[in-house]
Amino acid sequence: MIQCIAIEDEPLALSQIESYIKKTPFLELVDSFDNALEALEFLDSQPIDLIFTDINMPDLNGMEFVKSLRNPPKVIFTTAYEEYAIEGFKVDALDYLLKPIGYPDFLKSANKAKTWFDSQQVKPIETTSNDDFLFIKSEYKVIRVNFADIKYIEGMREYVRIHLTHGKPLMSLMSMKKIEEHLPKDQFMRVHRSFIVNLSKITTVEKSRIIFDENIYIPISDQYKDAFQAYLDKFFL
């Protein structure tokens, strides 16, 4: 399932997008908003896969909203103005839906999103590990990943993305629970249902977020906050 949010300041248009998402089998509507500022606050603590957003909105328009995101999900823009199409693709939008939007056009865009997400997945991996590294079997390759090279691990529903200090992330069809079982508990901690962090890579904590760099903010959810605070307290002067 592709987790989605919808942003639209017109109630009827928002209701329409909500109904289209709900009737599409591979999409899941996580939440909807009538302004981009509320959506911005939501995304601070809730990673999702795909955003359907109008461009023309008060306070913060859809284009400015997407450009402001540090870790932007994939985006499909909806608007009544055709001239925004080129600008939309400049921010790596998956597609552009011109109002009024019929379900056939919506489904075509949704299928385009599904094709993109499917292309990011690889075959399931098997893992073996010891105190220093993890062996990952992916398709016909066996890849050694040193624990010291892992910055954080991101759960994306059916698969995980292992973010490394160098190089591209490794992706695999695997649950967060399974990868967590293979990680040393004194080096890694789950701080959110979608994130496991390498404790040795943490340099800055701000409010309820771990900041790895100016573009990467990892939320600390209430469920894991006490355990994370206990870890910090051990080294706090």
Rank of each mutant, 00 (worst) to 15 (best):
M1N: 08
I5E: 04
I7E: 00
E8V: 07
D9W: 06
L12M: 12
S15T: 13
I17P: 07
I21M: 06
K23Y: 08
F26T: 13
F26L: 07
F33L: 12
A39H: 08
F42H: 07
D44P: 00
S45P: 00
I48D: 09
I51A: 04
D54W: 00
I55R: 10
M63P: 08
V66T: 11
V66C: 14
K67F: 01
S68C: 12
L69D: 02
P73F: 01
I76K: 00
Y84M: 15
D95L: 03
K99H: 09
K99E: 09
G102R: 08
P104L: 10
P104N: 06
A113L: 10
T115V: 13
D118S: 14
S119C: 11
Q120P: 02
Q121Y: 05
V122N: 05
K123P: 11
T127W: 00
T128N: 07
E139H: 07
Y140H: 11
K141I: 13
V142L: 05
R144C: 02
A148C: 05
E154A: 07
R157S: 13
I162R: 04
K168C: 07
P169G: 09
S172C: 05
L173P: 03
S175T: 14
K177A: 10
K178P: 01
K178G: 04
Q187V: 03
Q187Y: 05
Q187R: 14
H192M: 10
I202S: 03
I202C: 02
T204F: 01
V205T: 15
K207R: 07
D213N: 12
N215S: 08
P219G: 03
I220F: 04
S221D: 09
A230V: 14
L232V: 08
D233C: 11
